[in-house]
């Protein structure tokens, strides 16, 4: 779908045509509206699962951030947790130092992660393929080791102690049931999703997709590839940092695994599972992966890996563009079938 849209965009040479194309892309579909309304259902239908739901929303936000660089710009990262972790630790530290207000905490954490992202983006923009994967991986591991060594600052292995998050907006405590946590995480996810959606459907977003499809040719048409990559990478780092900060604030814990390889790999799996380059892929992937894990681990705490492994294999065998990609395909063929049958009936 996306490569078609680029072709379509390319065909539209007149500026007015390009504007119309982008405008058509950004129009809200009713399925999207229903989807976002459905995210409110856990409050009513599954109040016992709100803590899980809040962490699903945070993971979805993290996956959305990875989608911006992987799905839309072709940057494969195995170290994206670095920015998640910087955000998480920043939010934790300012709370330990006496400022537990969550919203300002998010802003500061986002800025900190964004700064680290901006600095690293200069290296990132120069590399592609396996080298890029290994550089992101190496950077993530280095940062985790640094956090381990700086025990005086980070609390080391035991994690940062003494985090206390003040009530949201001065009113809503982060409760045991997760009402506040889910509302907070969901609102954050939705707002940032709106921003990401706007970015993707802007001329800048189109340029990014061009880089993904053919990074060598973009400079030839005058697109500043490197600076585009640096910009989107920094934006993705900010979002990852905010996701990390939300996790710290809602759980009042942060430890080294917030920076770890496992988290980087998990988010990559969620995104591929849901489908890359579709904005909703990361969200769907996070929901499916975390709910499946919760259910499998509940039934079979020792061997749930087996079932989640089978799930991944099944998805990749039968839905090669992720769950969302597979569903789109199904829906399209169903639509075509339907149209054909109607046409057949009216001679």
């Amino acid at each position: 779908m996306t490569s078609d849209s680029i072709a379509a965009a390319a065909r539209e040479t007149a500026p007015a045509g390009a504007r119309d194309f982008l405008r058509g892309q950004i129009r809200w579909r009713w399925s999207e509206i229903v989807f976002w309304l459905a995210t409110l259902l856990p409050f009513v239908l599954a109040p016992d699962y709100l803590v899980l739901a809040s962490q699903v929303a945070i993971s979805a936000l993290f996956a959305l951030s990875l989608d911006l660089i992987l799905g839309f710009s072709g940057i494969v990262s195995l170290g994206h947790a670095a920015y998640f972790g910087v955000g998480a630790y920043t939010a934790g530290l300012i709370s330990v130092w006496g400022w537990g207000e969550p919203l300002t905490g998010l802003v500061v954490a986002g800025i900190a992660a964004g700064l680290v992202g901006y600095v690293t983006s200069f290296v990132i923009a120069r590399f592609r393929h396996l080298a890029l994967i290994m550089i992101t991986l190496g950077f993530g591991l280095l940062l985790q080791e640094a956090a381990n060594s700086a025990g005086w600052l980070t609390g080391g292995f035991n994690g940062l102690q003494g985090i206390h998050t003040w009530p949201l907006l001065g009113k809503f405590e982060f409760d045991l049931y997760g009402y506040t946590a889910y509302a907070y995480a969901l609102a954050g996810l939705f707002l940032i999703f709106l921003v990401a959606r706007r970015i993707i459907h802007s001329p800048f977003g189109l340029a990014l997709r061009g880089i993904r499809e053919n990074g060598a040719r973009m400079p030839a048409i005058g697109a500043p590839t490197h600076s585009h990559i640096r910009t989107i990478y920094t934006i993705a780092a900010i979002i990852a940092g905010i996701a990390g900060a939300m996790l710290t604030q809602s759980t009042e814990t942060v430890s080294l695994e917030a920076l770890g390889f496992q988290r980087s790999a998990d988010v990559l799996v969620m995104l591929i599972l849901g489908g890359t380059g579709k904005l909703y892929g990361g969200i769907i992937g996070a929901v499916v992966y975390m709910v499946a894990r919760d259910q499998f681990a509940g039934l079979n705490p020792q061997y749930w890996y087996f079932w989640i492994g089978l799930l991944l294999i099944a998805v990749v065998m039968f839905l090669p563009n992720g769950i969302l990609g597979g569903l789109e395909l199904l829906a399209e063929s169903a639509k075509a079938q339907w149209a054909k049958s109607k046409w057949a009936k009216t001679p």
Partner: peptide, 20 residues
């Protein structure tokens, strides 16, 4: 994104339902 997005959300929530 097709109509299926909402379907997925529905399924996920159905899985979530039910307490002890």
């Amino acid at each position: 994104m097709q109509k299926l997005l909402c379907g997925i959300a529905g399924v996920a929530l159905a899985v979530l339902g039910g307490g002890a």
